[in-house]
Amino acid sequence: MSITIIRAGLFDSMQDQGRWGYGIWGINPGGVMDLCAAAAANMLVGNDRAQPVLEIHFPGPQILFNHPAIISITGADFSPTINEQPVPLWKPLLVQKNTLLQFPKLVSGAIAYFSVHGGFDIKPWLNSYSTNTRAMAGGLDGRCLRKGDEISFRVQNKFNCHLLQPDQFFKPLPWRTNLGQVYEFPHEMYIIKGNEWDCLTGTSQYDFLQDNFLIHPSSDRMGYMLKGQILQQTHAGEMVSSGVGFGTIQLLPGGQPIVLMADHQTAGGYPRLGHVISAHLPKLSQLRPSECIQFQLTDMDTAESLYAGLERDLHIMESACREQLNPYLSCPL
């Protein structure tokens, strides 16, 4: 059971929920950028959330199915097609073998996730499937996917074959996930004040919360570089390097901020102005260069409640998806 990469995309990497516990060696957690869309991709096909998914940036890859599969595509809309017929997002799909999945056009969002029932059969490194391209380890040989890569998937259950006619390339199953609320108000990011917030002058604190920041084209999985009014520090100089996280907003020496993303380094020496709350990281991940961001201060209570709400929705979705999928699966292999 496998897929083959016919053409590689810009940055197709295997990711999971991150490699935690190795910060003392300088190994950053990495993992998916949009935790929600990645979780949904797995749940829709009946996988555990810890399974690796393929994270796709635009332009995406061309993927050939060597065998029939149950798949899902979530996150950004790159108008995916199978044998040139449009396929829906956020839904499980039964896919015929010898069909070609493509992502021809960017419609909305920045990152898509692709998951297959049973999960991709890759080796974990330090208890995680995430690709760490700098350490050249994890995921598929520590690198992005290349043309010709064949990736096996583990299949626990076969689906009933009569569900797909021989001339049918794919068939969407009749349910979808609804995570729309996660991506509402796409440009508004709640933040918790950072320890070095006071290194900004009063005027710059005001500007930081009023201004629209544009995402710079050089942004990637490590960080989103922002462009807005130049922010002034009360006193210059670097601090002693200290821990940072996914969502940490640092002030660079030129007076522009950067938001650290999933592939952030473990520690940094720039002032930490704030931290985007966990519940808003999925929508932040889905913004593209030249889109704008606005920051709004919030408190810990709100941040924690929003995250708990999001996890509750995912939890409900997970059990609902399992129940829906079960009747479509025939006896275990």
Partner: peptide, 21 residues
Amino acid sequence: LKDLVPAYCSLSIYYDPLQVR
């Protein structure tokens, strides 16, 4: 508790809020 990042004069602690809850 998920991860610990010791540095020169700090220790950062990463956790799963729901597990802590």
